[in-house]
Design a protein around this nucleic acid. Structure first.
Ligand SMILES: NC(=O)c1ccc[n+]([C@@H]2O[C@H](COP(=O)([O-])OP(=O)(O)OC[C@H]3O[C@@H](n4cnc5c(N)ncnc54)[C@H](O)[C@@H]3O)[C@@H](O)[C@H]2O)c1
Ligand SMILES: NC(=O)c1ccc[n+]([C@@H]2O[C@H](COP(=O)([O-])OP(=O)(O)OC[C@H]3O[C@@H](n4cnc5c(N)ncnc54)[C@H](O)[C@@H]3O)[C@@H](O)[C@H]2O)c1
Lengths: 229, 229
DNA sequence: ATGCCTTCGTGCATAATTTCACAAGGTCTC
DNA sequence: GAGACCTTGTGAAATTATGCACGAAGGCAT
């Protein structure tokens, strides 16, 4: 077994690198040249040691006593995340959300141009949304090949999301961004990220309820003078 | 210190409970009465022991040798997540995304009715989107009070997201769903969930690049007959 | 009733992640 | 160029999460 493979970055760190990158891009835009782990930690809302450890997975690119160079670190994070090239995205499902994504201009500048959108509804096929014409989902494989699609976004109805992802995988796509509130069945060789607003709201609800209960407990404790167990 | 507070559920488990709930709702809709941890694990794409442990945080609601009752578990998860009541949502920023959320009918049935939407652009204020009229962001505090808003969704431009969240927190909102690609500064007493598609795409890009490099290494290894270290 | 069969609940080992703490290695001033 | 002063990079400890393995507990057939 040759150990040529890149040093693996822990999953938890991978999810934070894009956040750091965002912040560094902002710093760059405001002409900041250098930053310390403390500063980045404050901006990212995390621990400074965590920042240093995360950045150390990229290599030793800091200078002791000084900090890190903004532009250099931006380059290194991009390299590690695979952002020195573009990754083409196809949207499957030209409904409300799918069309919003296709129209949204915020992805192409970040290296993820939306190069196609498809649907299975004859009424949708042929319509234009943003600068794209809705294609037929039956041509997905050809589209993936011709347009060098790397990532598929699932914005179909929930009921058809599984068949949509099956079609994407058949077409050779191995990275999926899923907006349908369903757990997709996929081989382990495929990456799936789920964006489920319902789930997010329910998580918020849990912590909100915790806080509510806690303040209620506090109130009760205040009223009944000295109750202790 | 009285130990009246509810047994704390680990964060990792909290993020999975909504997923289980989704699946159980589907099972319920297809008239399934019971399930085993193995079955739910397969549907959720996780380990069966993890399912049992997660469900055990709710209490001992399974029957050994049999499994769990769908409707009963649905109730218990809802109770724990705080879904036995509704949590009203206000959307701040009536642009593309904000209006899409306001129009989307999928949240109210899940217990999160969108009761208001506001903007700071005079041209937007007064327009109707879905069944709502866009209000003035300056009336946010009154709105939160009158409509008993529990959760705020930030869909403003990135530059104004921080002031929008400040306004929400001033108004007494302690749960935030943030769609702007920025790390918000908030007191620790406020919960924030970030939904950043750019981040998701970049995470996918990392793993996609890993796979690409791996297959390239494999190819090289195949070509150069026996290279070993 | 007895015994077999199934599946839960959980103690415990392992793995992953976070955090601490500090030596190492730099810059900057005088 | 010596010393004061910073901030990184990273072992090691602490915390959190995962997964195994098995006893406990119930149903069901005979
Ligand atoms: N709209 C929102 O704000 C929002 C928010 C959160 C989640 N979602 C989720 O996103 C998904 C899409 O939502 P939407 O509001 O855009 O729904 P929609 O009904 O407007 O759009 C779905 C589109 O997918 C197409 N489609 C269905 N099956 C297909 C298939 N097999 N191949 C190709 N196209 C197919 C339909 O023809 C339709 O055009 C849903 O799962 C929804 O739950 C939407
Ligand atoms: N549209 C998408 O598909 C999409 C996808 C991913 C992320 N986002 C993010 O979501 C956010 C909104 O995107 P969008 O496309 O809807 O933008 P948009 O420009 O269409 O809408 C922003 C709206 O917010 C309003 N606004 C600005 N400052 C405000 C304030 N302080 N108070 C109240 N309202 C205010 C503006 O008047 C405008 O109506 C952006 O941060 C964007 O990056 C959007």
């Amino acid at each position: 077994m040759t150990q040529l493979q890149r040093r693996r970055i822990p999953d938890a760190a991978v999810t934070r690198l894009p956040v750091y990158l965002q912040i560094l891009n902002n710093l760059h835009a405001t002409n900041v040249l250098r930053f310390s782990s403390d500063e980045l930690a404050a901006l990212a809302g995390v621990n400074a040691a965590k920042v240093r450890k995360d950045l150390s997975y990229l290599g030793s690119y800091g200078t002791r006593g000084v900090g890190y160079e903004v532009t250099y670190l931006i380059h290194q994070i991009k390299r590690e995340l695979g952002l020195l090239r573009e990754w083409n995205v196809v949207v499957v499902g030209a409904g409300n959300l799918g069309c919003a994504l296709a129209k949204f201009g915020g992805f192409a500048p970040r290296g993820f141009p939306v190069v196609g959108i498809v649907d299975n509804d004859p009424k949708k096929i042929g319509q234009t949304t943003g600068s794209l014409t809705v294609g037929d989902v039956r041509n997905l494989a050809k589209m993936v090949r011709d347009l060098k699609v790397a990532i598929g976004a699932i914005t179909t109805s929930t009921a058809t999301a599984q068949s949509a992802v099956d079609a994407l995988i058949d077409a050779g796509v191995t990275s999926i961004l899923n907006f349908a509130p369903i757990v997709l069945a996929t081989p382990s060789s495929v990456s799936v990220r789920n964006v489920d607003l319902g789930v997010e709201l329910q998580i918020l609800s849990y912590y909100e309820q915790m806080r509510t209960e806690q303040t209620e407990v506090a109130k009760i404790q205040t009223k009944s003078s000295t109750v202790s167990v």
